[in-house]
């Protein structure tokens, strides 16, 4: 992987500023009323008035992040770093998964939960490993995510892990009524958890079951919290908003592998910069025959499946 050149974390510049004091003044009253009426607890005026991440000025981003870090510290009693490292120029991330190697042990599922601060109760998991019949091939009428054999792999079965496919033409982004989810320049589809209104239209639109909703208040024990976070990634989420895999944006934009790639005991998971001809992912594309999940839908995933052996 040639992702060593350390990116300098800098917020993307945004045009347009806004008169913060006037907004806060007007908003304080509205926020109190809205909070009381909607039972969403004590939201501050700044919380209530926070704008779409992409429309914030550099300064607003800094202020927002400082506020979030303060709020998380209050909530968890620990220091939490909320980064906003931008996409690295010349990088588009892609993923390849070797179906002939995967044994369905689900270590990736749990590594992901730990790394990305998913709610433990109610349980949210971004990766879903499907057990399929060898006789049927990849066939969603003959699969289950609820397998529990004494030992994996179970005879007669193979395994197909799924997660967000980071589509080049993401239907989830197209349908969001408020622009709370979008595709970044490095190909990662992200959600602004402070802008999402929780309508779940994106969940209906995603063909891969990749988006998950916080149906209840997410619970994350403070000692299990991963304090190294990204605004668009694994920072702790809220009740009533949508979340999904971000290719471990907090790691990969800093030159590290996603947690699932690191943990996989069989080396089924390959990851890298698709624009770099020497990367492992390009090696896979060059030498293996790959397929995309539900190719006919033209979502054009940056996530490939292949049979390595």
């Amino acid at each position: 992987m040639t992702m060593e050149q350390d990116p300098i974390p800098q917020p993307e510049s945004c045009e347009g500023g806004c008169d913060v004091s006037r907004r806060v003044f007007l908003g304080a009253a509205v926020a109190t009323v809205a909070g009381a009426l909607t039972g969403c607890g004590d939201i501050s005026a700044e919380d209530f008035l926070q704008r779409n991440f992409r429309e914030m000025s550099k300064q607003e981003v800094q202020e927002t992040i400082a506020r979030l870090e303060r709020e998380y510290k209050e909530q968890f009693g620990r220091d939490v770093y909320v980064g906003n490292e931008p996409p690295i120029p010349g990088v588009i991330f892609a993923y390849a998964l070797d179906l002939s190697r995967c044994i369905g042990c689900r270590r990736c599922v749990y590594a992901c939960v730990k790394e990305n601060n998913q709610s433990r109760d109610p349980q949210i998991q971004w990766i879903r490993v499907l057990q399929m019949d060898k006789e049927e091939g990849v066939n969603l009428e003959h699969d289950t995510a609820y397998y529990d054999p004494p030992e994996v792999p179970a005879p007669g079965h193979f395994y197909m892990p799924t997660a967000c496919q980071q589509c080049k033409k993401p239907p989830c982004v197209k349908v969001c009524p408020v622009g709370a989810t979008w595709r970044e320049k490095d190909g990662i589809v992200v959600v602004d958890y402070n802008w999402c209104i929780g309508c779940r239209y994106c969940m209906a639109a995603c063909p891969y079951g990749a988006r998950h909703f916080n149906w209840g208040e997410p619970h994350l024990p403070a000692d299990e919290l991963n304090p190294h976070t990204h605004y668009l990634g694994n920072r702790p989420r809220y009740k009533g908003v949508v979340e999904k895999c971000t290719f471990c944006i907090q790691r990969t934009r800093n030159g590290r592998y996603p947690a699932c790639v690191e943990i996989c005991p069989t080396g089924s998971r390959k990851f890298g910069n698709i624009l770099d001809p020497t990367s492992e992912i390009r090696m896979v594309l060059e030498h293996k025959r790959v397929f995309k999940f539900k190719e006919d839908l033209n979502t054009q995933p940056n996530f490939f499946y292949f049979y390595g052996v």
């Binding site: 809205a34 909070g35 009426l37 909607t38 969403c40 939201i43 209530f48 779409n52 009524p177 408020v178 709370a180 802008w195 999402c196 209104i197 929780g198 309508c199 779940r200 909703f213 916080n214 809220y238 009740k239 009533g240 908003v241 949508v242």
Partner: peptide, 15 residues
Amino acid sequence: FVLVDIGRPDRFWHI
């Protein structure tokens, strides 16, 4: 019905 279905009615103004 739309209002009761959304997860964050406090953010109605986003729309």
